[in-house]
Design a protein around this nucleic acid. Structure first.
Lengths: 248, 248
DNA sequence: ATCCGTTATTGATGCATGTCAAAACCGTAC
DNA sequence: GTACGGTTTTGACATGCATCAATAACGGAT
């Protein structure tokens, strides 16, 4: 409940990971208390982006990873012809830009879905630091491998599951990510448009819309615009596993 | 042209990345000459697996990454109910296990598609070494981010492209990977069964088969079993971009 | 060489989802 | 408040691919 914001008196104008309420979700997770100071040294905190603004652009020089403090970010790849493919949604405490680590240019474009504040980790400093702090390096590997795994899960969802299953999975994913931040896991507002959901899940907008109303008619959710309430989480979980059962 | 195999007299029975013909594809790519020795120290070379044998299993303790020397490996995730999802194919010079870096257990199962030899990189030693060699660390980040990107590309392929486009893309991918090894890019034998292709691309086996024969009738490829010849690479490339053009 | 299990091909049919079209809704600016 | 562009919903229709079913080709073992 209580948000456990420790007031830490050092350098009030400067970045402070210590007093960030997300510190246990973000990079510092695996880092020792005294190492945290060194991470703070390289972080540029508090940049703010308005809805629709680009945090970075595909094919421009890769300089930094960004941790979301508040708001939400979507990443997408624009193919040669201008087709957009949404590759992910990032909520507070999550790190954007890992798919570009070790590359010269950003592999995707990131833009704010709503008013969003971020912390910036310049990659040169970050690599230097991970070379010195084995725990931090290990954590970076962990985050990156998580992203690979997540991507595989997504591919699996896209290739084997129905529209209902994909949407149920997304809703549950968002739910648990809200819960991690001590917010309601059953009552939240979607940061992204139906269009983005459709694109991300490889569906047509119309299909997304239809599934939403179907779920609503079944009493599983209640949705008005971006405002969503999960009325029957169990049912949603069943939907995601439905597919599995059938083939047994 | 010439394969530039330098005979390096040190420790003939021990691992030697120096004299591996894949060294410019594998980990050492970005590593200084003198750093290569230190990498050699941690590598366990020459383990051999027969077709069907497991290199490692999902949910068992993560100990090592493996570089393919010869043969081919497929990785897959087994979901709770036993459904298999193929997540990747790995050819000589490619590194398997990156999706488990920083985790306690392997995130997927890897098995040999044919008789396969690998080099093993114990992860504890590897992390220790990347902490000391910034170039190697950078290279690891690069490889991992490549895998994220590849995974996104796959998701894109699965969510937006037709069966023909997916299969054309796979054939071209394999082609370029054979070419990297200075082998024919137009005449090769598929290391995997139709079943694996179907699973990987999110299609039914029958569909894969049908597309193969359709391509054959169009004179784009010539296939007998796993033996494949790409007769018209341009046409294949057109197929993969076909989708893009339509929506312009 | 022959047999048998696995893998691959081919055909017929049904369904989920894309596409096209239009109406309803929403937020924003004037 | 009203008017507008963009988003969301709903409906009718078309189609690509999965599914079921059967045959054919392959490959390893005897």
């Amino acid at each position: 409940m209580a948000q456990a914001i420790r007031l830490h008196q050092a350098s009030p104008l400067k970045a402070s990971c210590h007093q960030c309420s997300l510190s246990n979700l973000c990079l510092p997770l695996a880092v020792e208390e005294n190492d945290l100071d060194r991470l703070e040294d390289i972080v540029q905190q508090g940049r703010i982006f308005n809805r629709g603004e680009h945090i970075f652009d595909q094919s421009t020089p890769f300089r930094s990873c960004f941790a979301v403090k508040s708001g939400a970010i979507k990443t997408s790849i624009i193919s040669e012809n201008g087709e957009e493919q949404v590759t992910g949604f990032f909520m507070p405490g999550e790190l954007v830009g890992l798919d570009s680590m070790g590359s010269k240019n950003y592999a995707c474009t990131a833009r704010a879905l709503e008013r969003t504040s971020v912390c910036e980790f310049p990659v040169d400093k970050l690599e230097e630091l991970t070379g010195k702090l084995p725990d931090l390096q290990h954590h970076m590997y962990h985050l990156m491998s998580q992203e690979i795994q997540g991507s595989h899960q997504l591919a699996m969802l896209l290739s084997k599951n129905t529209a209902e299953e994909r949407i149920a999975a997304l809703l549950l994913s968002l739910s648990s990510r809200f819960q991690r931040r001590r917010m309601s896991g059953t009552n939240f507002s979607l940061p992204m448009a139906r269009n983005d959901i459709a694109n991300f899940l490889g569906l047509a907008v119309e299909t997304v819309s239809r599934v939403f109303t179907r779920f609503q008619n079944q009493g599983i959710i209640s949705a008005r615009g971006r405002e969503v309430e999960l009325l029957d989480v169990e049912a949603l979980q069943t939907v995601t596993r439905e597919f599995s059962r059938q083939n047994t």
